[in-house]
Design a binder for these strands. Structure first.
Length: 588
RNA sequence: GGGGGUGUAGCUCAGCUUGGUUAGAGCGCUGGCCUGUCAAGCCAGAGGUCGCGGGUUCGAGCCCCGUCACUCCCGCCA
């Protein structure tokens, strides 16, 4: 609760209650609304703590005349006596609805222009307008509540980490651009013509250096910068709870993070499971078609290769003959959907890269609709129904494609169906997805790239495969996924210089370039680097989940638009010729 | 870079299908009335570069082309 101390007020609006009846108070805040009955004026006064109704009677002439002039969002100091509201006029919708303050003295501290939108919850104003007038937007209780939640989570993390001997250490914002990963924001150096700093995509390398330095347990509420295209859950700058620890196994990291997150989430007042379930990356792909599955609903993927092993349906037979897979899912309760609604699903799997969708709709009347069922034998039909657990009223969707693609296409479809069919339930369903492949093949560049980052530690028994079979190397890696949102990711790190050089080499960063770009890390690894690992939690996303928002912009005080602009300040903006000259830049 | 959606009063939107008189509504705003409201009520009023530019047409908010902004998604985001 907001403290009234050290201010011109003696109490805050939201703190007033029946116990205060009879006391004389001085309040300060903004006029939330004014209701003028001619001979009696009501003013709802709002401060950070809440809203309380103030009454102005003509008997207090001076205050009454002031009240007649008041307008929404004017800033006022009001003095009066807390009174119980007359019988029948209490407002149960209001936290302070049992009382009101009879004002005897009103002092206008500032006037206000009519705001561009009303200060109330549940508004539907264009986000650009809200951002441009963010200082008004934040007066809305739900916006303020998001910032309050954000602060609370920050404090809970700090306390949880501090209690476990973690040191909060700041790392540079002006740092060095390194290859791989996201595009860097770059900052020209005035004192070093032609040279540039980069803003950190994350403090990854610095936290590893801190482990070499013997810090052993580090954390930071770290601001990170990535110059990539934005999304509802991606801003050009965002905050990570960055954590790193030494002398640990993957199990140590997971169990510790699990404790910390449980403390934070229960501290935030939500239901949180005692244990976070774990699945491997491969299992997640097979069961849900995603490396960040939303497990608030079922609809798991099923392998139908056995069911259709001897199928006379040419599409399936050809697929199996060429080594592709047949997988399907059961869209519970969608069996009575219209043909056009089902056809729309076809587009979804097509956009995901699959050739097409085979579907069988089991209407609740027992009728079966399907463009393909006529090609299935009775055994296949029975086998299919049994395998996916299809009952009357269900819709079975099948994709035949190369292994990974079948999973991914159905995964996209599953996510869509979960929302469309209203299967998604409330609450929080976290899970660990572990054992990601160390590398991913990038078709465009005909090369390997890291699935987490180049410093992830391969399984010891896979190190020998690095050069000959990079695709099958697994890493000590883990993503924390909550309700389908990737909230965090981490790995054990490579602490052996030779292994680090070999991994960089697979990524196409050979000897000379590795020295130039990562020499400082490689050097550090040779001076007694302890085994270490950690995680980075997407703080904005976590808070977004906690306030039930759709976008991390809702939990950032001053966010940017999807083109990276700030409607409030006008950033990014042009700079003077002089400024450009200072940093030795010429524009094209 | 690609695809979808949106852009009309301060805010939220209708009008666009099928071009045609003076572009409407709710909220907000301004003024008046009103002593128990809390979405106050009643009466009156002000308020428009129909995102911007070009084109078609006798005539464009509406049709066409371009462009900008916002937004969602794909690519991208170790």
């Amino acid at each position: 609760m907001l403290d009234a101390g050290h201010s011109i007020r003696t109490r805050t609006c939201g703190s007033l209650a029946v116990d205060d009846v009879g006391s004389h108070v001085t309040l300060a805040g903004w006029v939330d609304s004014r209701r003028d009955h001619g001979g009696l004026i009501f003013v709802d006064l709002r401060d950070r703590s809440g809203i309380v109704q103030c009454t102005f009677d003509p008997a207090a002439a001076e205050a009454f005349e002031t009240a007649e002039r008041l307008r929404p969002e004017w800033v006022v100091e009001l003095r009066g006596e807390v009174c119980r509201r007359p019988d029948g006029t209490e407002n149960p919708e209001m936290a302070t609805g049992q009382v009101e303050v009879e004002i005897s003295l009103a002092n206008v501290l500032n006037t206000a222009e009519t705001p561009p939108f009303e200060v109330e919850d549940g508004i539907d104003t264009d986000e650009t307008t809200r951002m441009r007038y963010r200082y008004i937007d934040i007066r809305r209780p739900e916006m303020l509540a998001a910032l309050v939640m954000r602060d609370r989570i920050t404090q809970l993390f700090r306390r949880a980490l501090e209690n476990r001997s973690f040191l909060e250490i700041e790392t540079p914002i002006l740092t060095k651009s390194t290859p791989e990963g996201a595009r860097d924001f770059i900052v020209p150096s005035r004192m070093n013509p032609g040279r540039f700093y980069a803003l950190p995509q994350s403090p990854q390398l610095f936290k590893q250096l801190l482990m070499v330095a013997g810090v052993e347990r580090y954390y930071q509420m770290a601001r990170c910068f990535r110059d990539e295209d934005l999304r509802a859950d991606r801003q050009p700058e965002f905050t990570q709870v960055d954590i790193e620890m030494s002398f640990c196994t993957q199990e140590h990291v997971l169990s510790l993070v699990e404790e910390i997150v449980a403390e934070v989430m229960t501290g935030a007042g939500v239901e949180w499971p005692e244990r976070i379930s774990r699945v491997t990356h491969a299992e997640a792909m097979n069961r849900w078609g995603s490396d960040r599955p939303d497990v608030r609903f079922g609809m798991e993927l099923h392998c139908l290769v056995d069911v259709f092993a001897a199928s006379g349906f040419k599409v399936f037979a050809d697929a199996l003959a060429s080594g592709r897979r047949i997988k399907g899912l059961n869209a519970k309760g969608c069996g009575d959907w219209s043909r056009s609604r089902i056809d729309a699903l076809n587009q979804i799997v097509a956009d995901a890269g699959a050739e097409g969708l085979a579907w069988i709709a089991f209407a609740s009347t027992g009728e079966i609709r399907s463009p393909v069922a006529k090609f299935f034998s009775a055994e296949e039909m029975a086998g299919l129904r049994e395998k996916v657990g299809a009952e009357d009223g269900d819709l079975v969707c099948i994709v035949a494609a190369e292994h990974d693609l079948a999973n991914e296409a159905l995964g996209v479809l599953r996510t869509h169906l979960g929302q469309e069919a209203g299967l998604v339930q409330g609450g929080f369903r976290p899970m660990w997805v572990v054992d990601f492949p160390l590398f991913e093949w990038v078709e465009d560049e005909q090369g390997w790239s890291s699935s987490h980052h180049p410093f992830s530690r391969p399984f010891d028994e896979h190190v020998e495969l690095l050069e000959d079979d990079p695709g099958s190397v697994l890493s000590h890696s883990y993503d924390l996924v909550i309700n389908g949102v990737e909230v965090g990711g981490g790995t054990l790190r490579i602490h052996d210089c030779a292994v680090q050089e070999r991994v960089l080499a697979v990524l196409g960063i050979g000897g000379q370039e590795a020295r130039e770009k990562f020499g400082f890390l490689l050097d550090a690894l040779t001076y007694g680097a302890p085994p270490h690992g950690g995680i980075a939690l997407g703080f904005d996303r976590l808070v977004m989940l906690l306030v039930g928002g759709d976008s991390i912009r809702d939990v950032i005080a001053f966010p940017k638009t999807s083109s990276g602009a700030c409607p409030l300040t006008g950033a990014p903006d042009e700079v003077s010729v002089r400024q450009l000259k200072d940093v030795h830049l010429k524009l094209e």
